[in-house]
Nucleic acid binder design. Structure first.
Length: 469
RNA sequence: AGCGGGGUGGAGCAGUCUGGAGUGCUCGUCGGGCCCAUAACCCGAAGGUCGUGUGGUUCAAAUCCCACCCCCGCUACCA
């Protein structure tokens, strides 16, 4: 029997600043999904990376006196390290400056051109003579350049290559209709359907105003527009020979919805690739009720958190606290993390493991039919994973942990020394550890090791309580 | 403005799609039990007119429909 393929991608991050918990959240979820699918025996490929071209990178690099390449070389390492500190283990960390990716993008442009979807035209934008750069309406403050207020913004025209996005309106609407799971959750799909119905403009996909990008294969004066470049990372990074494409699920934040739900399928269709099964849009994290932003000074680095609380605690918190599948926003706070750590990981899970290990060390255990384990709602947990409801699957697992604690209480094995009761508990804990392994890989492995040994002994405390005061 | 999300005991959330006694979870408060365990675990109690309309549909509404109020996000060539 051939294994079922499971390919998960995350958005690739734009490394013009250091990684924060918002980036981390998405990567954690992707890693949990990847680990879960490995656990149930799928052939898994997990891709993440950095999006390294574009004007903003070029500018950010110039500001600190580095070449764009030096700049992204250094920052992409910070992203890699952050993920490593959280035990996030992608099968490939792709960078859009990777040679194989650049080659693929150029080939794709040619394919789209051959299919008649690319033509030369004129791009009109708001040009600031002070910056010598284009801005979008949104960048402008009261119709003026944020850096050169008072200076005139000119409407300038520039030669550019366009992608015939307008041609794909019907194709996209059909796609959303026939494949309701293409954009999840459904609220987001409705949003897109409404906006696409309003009509689509052709898209400028080349630039001449700066040069940090992939050379446009049809015209040496141009470079490829960053989104065209960035999106195809999912194909270039899909295994050694792109054998994992199409993706089963592509995770992204709601800021990237339009690009992934509209441009992406149109580009793929034009270039003759299959479409991903699902693009899954999650919400944003706020931090103590505020937007995460540099200017507010509330940017928390993933490495700081994993260093202070451990990778497992952060992973657990992120998955349990926020209803991922709803696509809604969630609020991050260290206090909430500590509360959940103390109450759930230390008191419920840690204490259960610890008390049962102590009992199993003192008294003997005897294999028997496990009535306790029947109370574990395994089917529902699997169902929740299928639906990306990580918080709900954790709820079910922890409900069973409560059942186990209750069982210890009621059966009083410290009095009865009942070997069968202890067996039921030991086996149940092994199952709990197995199910938790995608979320808290380090701790789960420790538990499994401890409870699979010939002689179970009470080990180190798994989750030491965090004193607050 | 348009579109989307939210308003549920003291706090934070599920529950709403597929209507059925205000059900549940974490924390907090109060009382009890246990002594295996990380001062952990278990049981019980108090506390809510489920944003407003004393609106509509229904035998029955937190759940469906309508109106209004209050929060928050998104609005495309910017990553």
């Amino acid at each position: 029997m051939t294994k079922k393929k499971f390919y998960v991608t995350t958005a690739i991050d734009y490394p013009n600043a250091e990684p924060h918990i918002g980036h981390a959240y998405q990567k954690i979820v992707a890693d949990v999904l990847a680990r879960w699918h490995k656990l149930i025996g799928d052939d898994v490929w997990f891709l993440t990376g950095t999006d390294e071209h574009g004007k903003k990178i070029q500018e950010a690099a110039e500001k600190v006196g580095k070449t764009p390449k030096q700049f992204v070389d250094e920052l992409s390492v910070k992203f890699k390290e952050a993920w490593k500190s959280l035990n996030i283990e992608p099968d490939r960390f792709i960078r859009t400056t990777d040679k194989d990716h650049e080659k693929l993008v150029q080939e794709v442009i040619k394919k789209c051109y051959e299919n008649g979807d690319i033509y030369k035209g004129e791009y009109e934008g708001c040009y600031c003579t002070g910056c010598e750069a284009y801005y979008t309406e949104k960048d402008l403050v009261d119709g003026e350049c944020p850096y050169h207020p008072g200076k005139k913004i000119q409407k300038l025209k520039e030669e550019s290559y366009f992608f015939k996005l307008s041609k794909y309106q019907k194709f996209l609407l059909d796609l959303y209709k026939k494949n309701p799971e293409f954009v999840l959750p459904k609220e987001r799909r409705n949003e897109i359907v409404n906006r696409v119905k309003e009509g689509l403009k052709d898209l400028s996909i080349s630039r001449t105003s700066f040069n940090w990008g992939i050379p446009f294969p049809l015209d040496k004066k141009h470079i490829v527009y960053v989104w065209f470049d960035a999106l195809f990372n999912y194909v270039s990074g899909a295994g050694k020979n792109q054998e994992y494409w199409p993706a089963n699920v592509q995770l992204l934040g709601k800021d990237n919805l339009w690009f992934h739900a509209v441009y992406w399928p149109a580009f793929l269709k034009s270039a003759g690739y299959e479409l991903p099964k699902t693009i899954f849009v999650h919400g944003f994290l706020t931090c103590n009720g505020q937007k995460i932003s540099k200017s507010l000074g509330n940017v928390i680095s993933p490495k700081y958190l994993s260093g202070k609380y451990g990778a497992d605690a952060v992973r657990y918190f992120m998955c349990r606290q926020f209803p991922f599948s709803e696509g809604s926003d969630g609020d991050f706070s260290e206090k909430a993390l500590i509360d959940r750590y103390n109450n759930e990981l230390a008191d419920k899970l840690g204490n259960l493991v610890s008390r049962v290990a102590a009992l199993a060390e003192k008294y003997r255990i005897e294999k028997c039919e496990n009535k306790l384990l029947k109370k574990l709602k395994l089917k529902e947990i699997e169902k929740h994973f299928e639906n990306y409801e990580l918080d709900k699957s954790l709820n079910e697992i922890f409900a069973f942990i409560d059942v186990c604690n209750e069982y210890v209480q009621n059966k009083k094995p410290w009095e009865t020394h009942d070997a069968k009761v202890l067996y039921e508990l030991v086996e149940s804990i092994r199952e709990i550890a197995r199910l938790l392994s995608p979320f808290i890989p380090e701790s789960a492995e420790k538990i499994l090791k401890q409870f699979s040994a010939k002689k179970i002994i009470k080990g180190e405390i798994l989750f030491k309580k965090i004193e607050t005061k």
